[in-house]
Design a protein around this nucleic acid. Structure first.
Lengths: 230, 230, 230, 230
DNA sequence: CATGAATGAGTGTTCATTCAT
DNA sequence: CATGAATGAACACTCATTCAT
C-alpha cells in the first residue's frame, strides 16, 4: 500500500504559456486561495486578498487565472481531483478483502483530504453550490461523479467476491460518501465555532462508521432480514 | 404540540428600541427572512427583498433588527422551538423493537423536518456557523445536544434490550445523525443546483441507510468480528 | 410657426416610483450626463463624475438609471426623441410650400439641436455606434428611423404638390439628413480642436445647403437632365 | 504615384530611443494598428492586440512608441500621404464639363478612399479629433485644407466656364465634401453595427447626391430664385 | 412609527505601462 | 534589442445602512 506523501508534484496545468521553471506563483496563489476560500467562503473571499497573501498584485492573479471562478476550480483540481488517478490505481491493484479495502479507503481519504485544509472544499461546495450553480455543476461533474464511481467500484468488487451483500449501488455509494462529507462539514462548521462538546475525533468517528458499514448496529440475534426494507 | 410553523412568541430580543406590543411586523419579517435565507443563503439574501416580501420598507426592517446579522440570528433562534418534547414522549412510550424504532425515527425526521422548509435551518447553520460562532454555539446547545440525547436514548434502550450491540454511544449517535444532516445539506445544495444526476430520492436514501444501520454491508460469511476496529 | 422655447417640460419619465414633485435630481443628472458624454465620449465618461457634477453620489445615480447605458438612452430621449412629436405636428400643419418647409426644417433643427449641447449626441453616436452596437441599434430605432420618416413626409408632400421632383425617397432623405449630421460632427470634432480655418459658420453652411437642395449647382443653361444618373 | 499602401518611409519621429535603421517592425506595427483602430476605434483597441497582430511582444511596441497615444498619432500621420498630387493633375487636365467632373470626382473618391480601408482614417479623425487636438489641427492642415482646395478649383473652373452658378465657394466646397465624409462616417458606424435598415448603398447614395448637386430638388416650375437665401 | 431617498465602501475585472532578464 | 511577467489605477455596479421627513 503506497504511502501517500504530501510532496507529490503539483497538479495544476495550463496557466502558463509555455512550460515554466517557476511554478512558484501559481502554487502560492493556489495555496492562498485554498486558505481563504476555506476560511471565509467563496463569495466572501476577495481576490485581492488572495493575491496579497500570495505576495503578488491583483493583476498578477488574473494573469494566471482568468476569473475568480477559474481560480476556485483550479484549487479544487489541485487538491481533490488530483487524487483520483492514484486512488483509481490503488483500487485496481488492491489485494485485500472488501472490509480491508473500505477501511483503507476511509483512512486514506482522511489522511489526504479530511485532515488537510482541502476538507474545507466539500464543506464550501455544499454551502455555496446553490448560490453558484455553475460551480456546483462543475463540482458534480469533476469531483462527485468520479468520486462516486470510485466507491461504486469498491462495492461492486465486494459483491462479486461475495464479501458484500447485494444492494442498490446508487444509494450504497452514499453510505460510504455521506459520512466522509459530513465529517468535513462538521469540522468546518461546528468544529471551529463551538466548544469541545461539538468536537468530533475523526479517528473514532471513522472507526465507528467502519464498524457500522461492516456489521450494522444489530446484535446477531436481532439482525433483521433484508426483506424489512425492500 | 408545538410545530415549526407555530405562533409561539418570537424569541428575538434586544433589537427593538423599546419593548414592543405589536409583534406583527417582526413576525412577517422573520418568516420572509427564513424563506430567503433558506432559499438563497445568508450572503445572497438582500435585506431589501426580505422587507419587500414582508410588505414593509427597508427602513422599517432596520427599525426592528439593527443589522442583517441580527436579523439572521433572530431567524434561527425563532425556529428553534422543539419538536423534542414530542419525540421524547414517543421514545419513552415506544413499544416495538429497536429496529422498528430507528426506522420510525428516520421517517419521522424526514416527515417533520427533512421534507419541510425546516430542513433549511440545519443547512444554514452548518453553512454559516463558522461565520457566526456564537450562533453556532447556541445551536449546539439548544438543538444538537438535545437531539443527540434523544438518539442516545434510543440506542441505549436497544443495547439494554439486547437488540443493539454494545458500542461507544457518543459516536454511535452520529451514525444516526450524520445521514439525516447530510440529506438536509444535500437537498439544499446540490439538490437544487445540479441536474438529475445529483438528485437523491430521500425515501430510498433513508431505506438504504436503515439497512446499513441494521445489517451492515457484509454478507454473513464475510462479516468480520468487532475486534477488527477496536 | 411656433417659437420653440427651451423651457419645455422635461421629457424623461419612469425613473421614479410614483409621480414626484422634485424632478431636480434626474434633471440635473441628465444635464450633467449630456455635458460629459458630449465632452468625453461614452466610454470615457465615468458615471461617478456624472454623479459628482450633478451633486449626488454614485449610488444615487443608479437609483434613477439602472445602468450607464440606460442613462445614455435617457439623455437621448430627453434631448432628441422628445422633439419628434412637435416636429411631426408642425409638418402636418405646415401651410407654406416645400421650399419654405425645408428651410424651416433646417433652421428648426439648428435652433433646437445643432446650436445646443444636444448636437454632441449624433456625433457621439456616429463615433461610438460600432463599439456599442446596442446603443447604435437603439439610436437607429428611436432616433434615426423616426427622423428619416419625418424628412420623408416632407419630401413626399413636396412631390405630391408638384414642388419637388420625383426621386428615390430612401436616398433623398439622406440629402437632407447628411448635411445636418455632418454639421454636428464637424462642430464637435474639428470645430473644437482646430483654428479658425476649420470653423464653419452654421448659418451660412445651412443657407448654402438649402440653395443646393433647391437649385443645385448648375446654371440654367448647363443643367443636365436626370437621365444622367439613372 | 504614391498610394495609401505604399512603402514610403514612415513619418513617425521621436518615439525611438535613437534613430533606427530597421523600420520593419514599426511598419508592421503601424499597419496592425491602423487595422485595429479603424475596426474598433481608439479606446477599444488594445495595444496587446496590435502587438500580437504585428508579431511582436507588447514590450516591443512600447520600445517604438512611447504610449498608445503616440502610436495613434503615428498611424494617422503615416497615412496622410497624398492622393492629392494625382487628383490635382487630373483636375488640371480634365476635358469634360463640370457636371462630368464632379461625377468623376465623387466616384474616384469612392473608388480610392471610400471603398477602401483608408475611409477609416477620416472616421477616426472626426471621432477622435477632440481628444487629440493637435492631431486634429495637423489633419486639418495636411488633409482637409488641400482637399478643400482641390474641390474649390473644380467649382471655380465650373463658374468660369459658366457651368456652375456663382456662389460662396468657401461653403460650396462643403456641399461636395460633406456627403463624402458623411458616407465614410456612416460606413464605419451604423453601417457596421445595425441591421440592414441602416445600410447605405454607396453607389445609389452618391448618384442621388450628384443629382442633387447638379439639379437640386425642385421641379422646374417650383425652382426658387437665388434671392431666397442671400 | 414608517418611509424610501441617499450614501459610499467594496467587488471582480481590465489594460496601458514598466522593467528585470 | 526583445521579451513577457508584473503592476495598480480605473471602472461599472451593488447593497447594507442611515436619516430627514
Amino acid at each position: 500500500m503506497s504511502s501517500l506523501t504530501s510532496t507529490d508534484p503539483p497538479l495544476f496545468a495550463g496557466h502558463t504559456r509555455r512550460e515554466r521553471r517557476k511554478d512558484a506563483r501559481p502554487g502560492e496563489l493556489l495555496a492562498a486561495a485554498l486558505d481563504l476560500f476555506v476560511e471565509k467562503g467563496y463569495a466572501a473571499t476577495r481576490v485581492e486578498e488572495v493575491a496579497k497573501r500570495a505576495g503578488v498584485s491583483k493583476g498578477t492573479l488574473f494573469l494566471y487565472f482568468s476569473s475568480k471562478e477559474e481560480l476556485f476550480k483550479a484549487v479544487v483540481r489541485e487538491h481533490i481531483t488530483g487524487r483520483f488517478a492514484q486512488w483509481s490505481d490503488e483500487i485496481e491493484n488492491f489485494e485485500g478483502n472488501s472490509q480491508e479495502m473500505l477501511r483503507y479507503c476511509l483512512h486514506s481519504w482522511w489522511e489526504h483530504i479530511g485532515a488537510t485544509q482541502a476538507s474545507g472544499i466539500p464543506k464550501l461546495m455544499m454551502s455555496e453550490a446553490s448560490n453558484f450553480p455553475e460551480l456546483g455543476a462543475f463540482y458534480q461533474a469533476e469531483v462527485m461523479q468520479p468520486g462516486k464511481a470510485l466507491i461504486e467500484r469498491i462495492l461492486q468488487r465486494g459483491i462479486e467476491r461475495g464479501e458484500i451483500r447485494a444492494m442498490d449501488l446508487k444509494y450504497g455509494v452514499y453510505m460510504v460518501l455521506a459520512p466522509l462529507l459530513f465529517l468535513a462539514m462538521w469540522k468546518h462548521s461546528f468544529g471551529t465555532c463551538c466548544g469541545t462538546l461539538a468536537q468530533i475525533e475523526p479517528e473514532r468517528y471513522l472507526e465507528t462508521q467502519l464498524d457500522m458499514l461492516l456489521l450494522g448496529f444489530s446484535t446477531d440475534s436481532a439482525r433483521p432480514s433484508l426483506s424489512l426494507s425492500t
